[in-house]
C-alpha cells in the first residue's frame, strides 16, 4: 500500500519526510538526524533531550524564526528548518529570514 500521507520538510537543504501531526524534532529523529544546534561555549552538538518542551536543548530555526523548540513545533509541508550555530553570522535585518 502506498502511504500518501507522507509529507516533507527541508532541513539544511535535505528533504526529510514526516507524517502529519509529528513535530519537527520527531521527523528529524526518525530520519536519523540527532543534532541541529551548536553550543556557544563548547561548540558541541545538541538535539533532543527532554523531548517534552522543558530543556530547550533542541532549539532550531524554523521558517526564519530562530530558537524554536523542535520537540514542540509541528512539522508542515515545505517548512524550512535550519541548524543553528552561534558562530555563523546572523542575517541582516529585513533580509530573507528576518
Amino acid at each position: 500500500m502506498i502511504d500518501d500521507s507522507t509529507r516533507q520538510l527541508c532541513f539544511d537543504g535535505r528533504n526529510v519526510p514526516f507524517r502529519p501531526g509529528q513535530s519537527v524534532g520527531a521527523a528529524l529523529a526518525a530520519a536519523g538526524i540527532s543534532s541541529w544546534r551548536t553550543t556557544r561555549v563548547g561548540a558541541a552538538p545538541r538535539g533532543l533531550f527532554c523531548g517534552i518542551g522543558v530543556c530547550y536543548d533542541c532549539l532550531v530555526t524554523v521558517d526564519g524564526r530562530r530558537s524554536q523548540r523542535a520537540c514542540m513545533t509541528p512539522a508542515h509541508e515545505g517548512q524550512v528548518v535550519a541548524s543553528d550555530d552561534p558562530r555563523r553570522a546572523l542575517d541582516e535585518p529585513g533580509g530573507p529570514n528576518a
Binding site: Q22, A30, L48, F49, C50, G51, C71
Partner: peptide, 22 residues
Amino acid sequence: TTPGVMAAGGVQALLAGHHVRA
C-alpha cells in the same frame, strides 16, 4: 550531553506521540 542521550520521558513521548523510535 552527547546527542543520542535523552530523558526516558522524552524517548517515551517520541514513541507515544509520534511513533518514532529514537
